[in-house]
Each structure stands twice: as structure tokens, then as C-alpha cells.
Amino acid sequence: MKFTEKISNKLNELLVKNYDAEKGYLNAAETVDSPDLKIFFKRRATERSEFAKELRTEILRYGEEPKDSGSFKGIVHRNWTSLKALFSSNDEEAILKEAIRGEEDSLEEYLEVLKDRTLPPSVDTMLFKHKSAIQAAINTAKVKEELVS
């Protein structure tokens, strides 16, 4: 496997995770009653959409094909499936807990990719920025969870 293909494969895994997170956040925003939580979830969805655009651009830069938004890996899909099941109950604390769990999974994936010391500086910088934003979202969601419990 060539170096550029290896990088693109890693970025595609993160791309799929971001597509799924964006959809999960949009579903969460539609479900909760709290205006504050609606705004929080919509902002996270927009953020994840931006991450996906940046990842797509990098993948294309390496001459590889970005995955489509419709292609979800089984694990990624399951991460948000339980969140969707919670929507019918409109339990804001449970929805926040599931969002935190999904973000913690994303954070782990980013950390795993960032362990690769052969990443080009532009990719490393982009992924570090995404990782930091995901960590900030986790921290904010935990504060919001305390407020609704």
C-alpha cells in the first residue's frame, strides 16, 4: 500500500465518523426541547460537517477517493443507534450521555491516527485541531449534563 493511500484510508475512517456524528447531532437537536441544547447540538453538527469537508479536501489532495456520506461502518453506526433509540423518550440527560459516549469514541479514533508520526504536518495540524474541538465538546456536554440532571 502506498503512503498516500495509507493516509487516505485513515482519513476516510475519520470522515465516516464525522458524517455519522453530524447526523446524530442533527437528530438530537430535533429531539430535545431545551433551546440551549438545540443550539449546542446544531453547532456540533455544523462543526462535524466542517471537519468532514476538511477531511475530504485532504483525501482528494492525496489523489484518493473520499467515502460518501451514505457509507457507514458498522461500529460507527452502532455508536449513534442507541442515541436514536433515546429520542422517543426525549430524556435530555440520556441524550447528552450518549452524545458524550459518541464523542469519546471519536476522540479515541483521532488519538489513534495522531499516533502515526509519519503524517504530513498539514494533516497532523488539522487532526489536532479536530481533536481539541472534540475534547471541548465533551467538556461542554458534561457541564450541560450536570445542569439537566
Rank of each mutant, 00 (worst) to 15 (best):
S71I: 08
D68Y: 04
I7W: 07
T81H: 12
E64T: 03
R61C: 04
K42L: 12
P35W: 03
E65R: 08
F41L: 08
L55N: 07
E30R: 13
G70C: 07
L60R: 12
S89H: 12
I59S: 00
N18A: 06
R56S: 04
Y19G: 07
T81N: 08
V76I: 12
A52Y: 01
K23E: 14
S89E: 14
F87I: 11
F72S: 09
E58L: 13
S88P: 00
R44K: 14
A45E: 01
E13P: 01
L86N: 13
A45C: 03
A52K: 01
E50W: 04
K10C: 06
S8L: 00
F72E: 09
T57G: 05
S8G: 02
Y62E: 08
K73A: 14
S71M: 09
T31Y: 01
L83F: 15
E54I: 09
G63L: 10
T46C: 09
N12W: 02
E54D: 12
E64L: 00
E64D: 08
L60H: 05
P35R: 05
L37N: 03
N79C: 06
S71N: 09
A52E: 03
R48D: 10
W80I: 14
G74I: 04
L11K: 03
V16F: 03
I59G: 00
G74Y: 03
P35G: 03
S88Q: 11
D91C: 07
F41W: 05
S49Q: 15
G63T: 09
L14F: 02
L26M: 09
S8H: 00
V16T: 14
G70M: 06
V16W: 07
S82L: 13
E5D: 11
I75S: 00
G24M: 02
K10H: 05
E5R: 08
G70V: 08
S82W: 11
K17G: 13
I7G: 04
K38W: 07
E58Y: 08
R78S: 09
K42D: 15
S89Q: 14
E92W: 04
A52G: 05
K38A: 06
R78E: 04
L37F: 03
K67T: 07
K53H: 06
F41D: 08
I7H: 04
F87G: 15
E13R: 04
E50T: 12
K10Y: 08
T81V: 13
K67N: 06
Y25D: 08
D36A: 14
I75R: 00
E92V: 06
E50L: 10
I39T: 15
R43M: 11
N18R: 05
K23F: 12
R56L: 00
S34G: 03
S8T: 01
R44L: 14
L26A: 04
E50V: 12
K17A: 15
T46S: 14
K38I: 11
S82H: 15
P35N: 07
E64H: 05
E54S: 11
E13L: 08
S88L: 13
T46M: 15
K53P: 01
E92L: 07
D36E: 15
